[in-house]
C-alpha cells in the first residue's frame, strides 16, 4: 500500500536521470564512434587491401556462368603507398546462350580497361596522373564491356558489380542483381547497390509485400543487364571504403540463399578472408546450392 502511494505521490524527479555537464549521450556522433573504434583497432605499418574469394557451380546447375576478378596492388617504398584494388563479380544470364561468355567478357574487359588506365600511374616512372575521374574510368569500362558483349555474344547478358578501391574510397559500378555490401565489425550488413530486377522494382513501387517478394516466381528477371538493350545506364557512385569492416561482392547464388545473419557469423568465426569465403560457399551449397555461387570479401587494413 505504501508503495502504491509512493508511486502516486512520490517526487518524480528522483527517477529522472540528471544531465551531466558536458557529458554526451547516445547516439554518439560518427566522429566519436570512429575515434573509439580507431583507438581499439590494431595498427599495420602498411595500409593495404586484403581480399579472399570463393566460387562454386552449386548443386543444381551443370555449368558455371559466374565470373570473378580480384586484383590487389600494394606498392610501398619511400613514396607514399596508396592501396589499389579492383574487384568484379559478373553473373551470366541463365536461359540465355553464352551466359558464361558474357560474364567472362565482362570481368576481363572491365578489369582490363580500368587496369590499363592505371598502368601508367602504377608502373611508369615518374608516375603519371590520370586525366579521367574515377567515375568516368568506371563508366567507360562498363560501356566497353556492354558493347563487346552485344557484338560478340549477341543475345546473352550478364550482371556486373565492380569495385575500384583507391586510397580510402571505393567507386562502384553496378548493373543487375549481384550485390555489394558494407559489413561493419559490429555485425551490420548494408547493401551498397540496388538490384535492377523485376522483383526489386515491384517491391519499390509497393506492389509486393515482404512475403510476396520472398515467393515471387520471377525473382531472377533483370530489368537491366550488360549486353542487353540499346542504351545502358550503370549505377556509379563513390563512397568511403567500409573501414573498419569489409566490402563483400557476391552473386545471387549467395545472397539469395544464405541469410545476412549467417554471413556475419561466418565472417566473425573465420580466421581469414579466404576461409570465410569458402565457408559461405559451403553454406550456400548446404542450403541446396540452387545457383552458381560467387563471393569476394575485401578488407582495408592499416
Amino acid at each position: 500500500m505504501a508503495d502504491f502511494f509512493r508511486k502516486l505521490f512520490g517526487p518524480k524527479e528522483d527517477t529522472k536521470p540528471r544531465p551531466l555537464d558536458g557529458a554526451t549521450t547516445a547516439p554518439l556522433t560518427d566522429q566519436q564512434i570512429q575515434s573509439i573504434i580507431s583507438s581499439q583497432a590494431p595498427r599495420y605499418e602498411i595500409r593495404q587491401l586484403v581480399a579472399g574469394v570463393g566460387q562454386s557451380v552449386g548443386k543444381q546447375r551443370d555449368h558455371n556462368e559466374d565470373s570473378l576478378l580480384a586484383l590487389t596492388t600494394t606498392i610501398s617504398g619511400n613514396a607514399e603507398s596508396i592501396p589499389f584494388g579492383l574487384y568484379v563479380v559478373a553473373d551470366g544470364m541463365g536461359g540465355h546462350q553464352f551466359g558464361e561468355v558474357a560474364s567472362n567478357a565482362a570481368i576481363r574487359i572491365v578489369g582490363g580497361a580500368i587496369a590499363s588506365k592505371f598502368h601508367s600511374y602504377l608502373f611508369k616512372l615518374p608516375t603519371q596522373s590520370i586525366q579521367d575521374s574515377l567515375q568516368e574510368v568506371m563508366e567507360s569500362a562498363i560501356l566497353e564491356a556492354h558493347q563487346y558483349i552485344q557484338r560478340e555474344a549477341p543475345g546473352s547478358g550478364t550482371t556486373i558489380t565492380a569495385a575500384l578501391a583507391l586510397g580510402g574510397q571505393v567507386t562502384i559500378g553496378h548493373v543487375g542483381d549481384s550485390r555489394a555490401y558494407a559489413i561493419s565489425p559490429d555485425g551490420r550488413m548494408e547493401p551498397m547497390t540496388r538490384d535492377h530486377s523485376l522483383v526489386k522494382r515491384l517491391e519499390e513501387l509497393g506492389h509486393l509485400s515482404k512475403d510476396e517478394v520472398d515467393n515471387f516466381p520471377h525473382r531472377n528477371v533483370l530489368i537491366r543487364a550488360l549486353g542487353q538493350g540499346e542504351t545502358l545506364e550503370a549505377d556509379i557512385f563513390t563512397i568511403p571504403f567500409p573501414h573498419p569492416g569489409y566490402l563483400m561482392i557476391c552473386s545471387d547464388g549467395l545472397w539469395g540463399v544464405v541469410n545476412e545473419k549467417d554471413v556475419i557469423r561466418i565472417i566473425g568465426e573465420s580466421p581469414n578472408l579466404h576461409r570465410a569465403c569458402q565457408s559461405m560457399v559451403e553454406a550456400a551449397n548446404a542450403a541446396g546450392g540452387p545457383d552458381n555461387i560467387t563471393v569476394i570479401l575485401v578488407q582495408l587494413v592499416g
Binding site: 596508396i82 575521374s133 567515375q135 586510397g167 574510397q169
Partner: peptide
Amino acid sequence: LYALDANSGFAIWK
C-alpha cells in the same frame, strides 16, 4: 566542379 580523393588527389568525379 571536382571531387578529389583527399589521400591521393585522384578525381573521383567531375
